[in-house]
Computed example of a mutant assay.
Amino acid sequence: MGPVALAIHGGCGVMAKLDLSEEEWAAARVDLRRSLEAGWAILSAGGSALDAVQVAVIVMEDSPHFNAGYGAALNAAGYHELDASIMDGQTQTGGAVAGSRHIRNPIRAARLVMERGEAVLLAGHAADDYAKAGGLEVVPNSHFTTERRVKALAAMKEHEKQGTAAKASESEKHGTVGAVALDAAGHLAAATSTGGYNNKPEGRVGDSPIIGAGTYARDGVCAVSGTGKGEFFILHAVGHEVASRVAYLGESLEQASSKIIIDEFQPRSIGAGLVAVDAKGNIAAPYNTDGMFRGWVTPEGKFFVGTHDQVFAL
């Protein structure tokens, strides 16, 4: 049996350090650790990478500290539209939902779509109906609302009114959660979930539910989950691009992911980040914004979490 590894992100463009109290930052780090522990419990027991990334994302979907599930961003009309996807590197299959309004854990619905194999992506009310018919929990749209997101929407509305939307902080705009994993059998998987960005147009779909953009996994190569300005992840097929650079150019995981996030996106002011793991258990977590909620467990079982430039060993 080979090495196992796990990495997660809770979105790049996290708030400026002074926007939250140290208690709130600490609470977010606790939930990052809980996410890692959930995924690692599966991997360390010989379970699948697919199961590990799903449970890791579920923990963050249920946390108010991240932009996915409970605590997700509000669109321009003041309600939530949730996106998620998951990909199995072994079978090269994936599933996704977009524009869901009522699925408590959209990543569960993405897994259901993948396993049934009738489609790769389901959208809108059809995704909600599909999840409900499949026995998944559905909730009122208000379930996902938190005071922080209400304030963020109001802030973005004011920026829009004043013509200063471009100057809004990353925390006022977007965020995502995701996980990547390598299991003992050598299989890779990736999962991503998001509420999109605050004040987004109704019906907007970003990169998180797009296989090859915000989520990608290929056995023997790497698994990737992205966060940031989703339109650019779609246009540049970022997940697939990272894997292609590793597979075809022979770049290391760090080289391939940094080439896009740092070398290509940062000079163009495209806020972005990602987490990735390769077939040997190497982990990369580059970002070009003020910070990125992130964490990982090395093949040796060492836990780390970070928000800004400081990384905490747990």
Rank of each mutant, 00 (worst) to 15 (best):
S48P: 00
A45E: 15
L36G: 03
A52G: 01
D31K: 13
R33T: 12
A27M: 11
D62P: 01
A27D: 14
A56L: 03
W40T: 05
S63E: 04
Q54M: 04
A41Q: 13
R29E: 15
I58L: 00
S48Q: 12
V53A: 09
M60T: 04
I42M: 08
G39Q: 08
E37K: 13
A28M: 11
A38L: 05
L50Y: 14
D62E: 15
L43E: 05
S48E: 13
G47V: 09
R29L: 13
A38E: 09
V53Q: 00
I58C: 10
A49S: 14
A45W: 08
W40M: 01
S44E: 15
V57L: 03
L36S: 06
V53M: 03
L50V: 12
A38Q: 07
A38G: 13
L32I: 02
G47A: 10
S48Y: 08
A45Y: 10
V55Q: 12
V30T: 14
D31C: 02
R29H: 07
E37Y: 04
L36Q: 02
L50D: 04
L50W: 11
D31R: 14
V30D: 14
A45H: 11
S35E: 00
R34P: 03
V53P: 01
R34A: 14
A56G: 15
L50P: 02
L50F: 11
V59P: 05
M60L: 15
M60V: 01
A49P: 09
P64I: 14
A27V: 12
P64N: 11
V59A: 02
A52S: 11
A52R: 03
V57T: 08
D51Y: 10
S63Q: 04
A38K: 14
W40A: 03
S35A: 13
V59C: 04
L43R: 09
L50G: 09
S48T: 15
G46L: 07
E37A: 14
E61Y: 05
D51L: 07
V30P: 00
V57K: 03
D51H: 11
E37F: 09
A49Y: 11
V57A: 00
D51I: 05
D31V: 10
G39K: 05
A49Q: 03
V57W: 04
M60Q: 10
G47E: 06
